[in-house]
């Protein structure tokens, strides 16, 4: 994994703080809906937070493909690369 991707993962994890209630250790392999107990609305709201944090537009249809924190980080990296 690249240094940049690691950084994105760290940022995502720190941003998740206020959203996640269950005390779990979050890693790249953490499944966002299953392990963190976020419903689809919570995921969409969290995506808005990330859009602002990374100053990037993350279209909803890209979220449909995302399962883990790692997927999410790669999606953001990809979208940033295109900007």
């Amino acid at each position: 994994m690249t240094a940049e991707l690691d950084e994105i993962v760290d940022e995502i994890i720190s941003a998740l703080g206020p959203t996640v209630q269950t005390p779990v250790t979050i890693t790249t392999d953490t499944n966002i809906t299953r392990d963190l107990g976020l419903d689809s609305l919570a995921v969409m709201d969290f995506v808005m937070v990330l859009e602002d944090k990374f100053d990037v537009s993350i279209p909803l249809e890209r979220i449909a493909e995302v399962e883990t924190i790692g997927d999410l980080a790669r999606t953001i990296q990809d979208l940033r690369g295109r900007a």
């Binding site: 808005m48 859009e51 537009s57 279209p59």
Partner: peptide
């Protein structure tokens, strides 16, 4: 939104500044 072939972006409820920010991000 599910049915459209285009991209879908959400903004914060009833927040014109948030809408502006998101549209600006898409300006290119």
């Amino acid at each position: 939104a599910k049915m459209t072939a285009g991209q879908v972006v959400r903004f914060r409820h009833n927040d014109p500044d948030d809408l502006y920010k998101r549209l600006r991000r898409l300006s290119d």
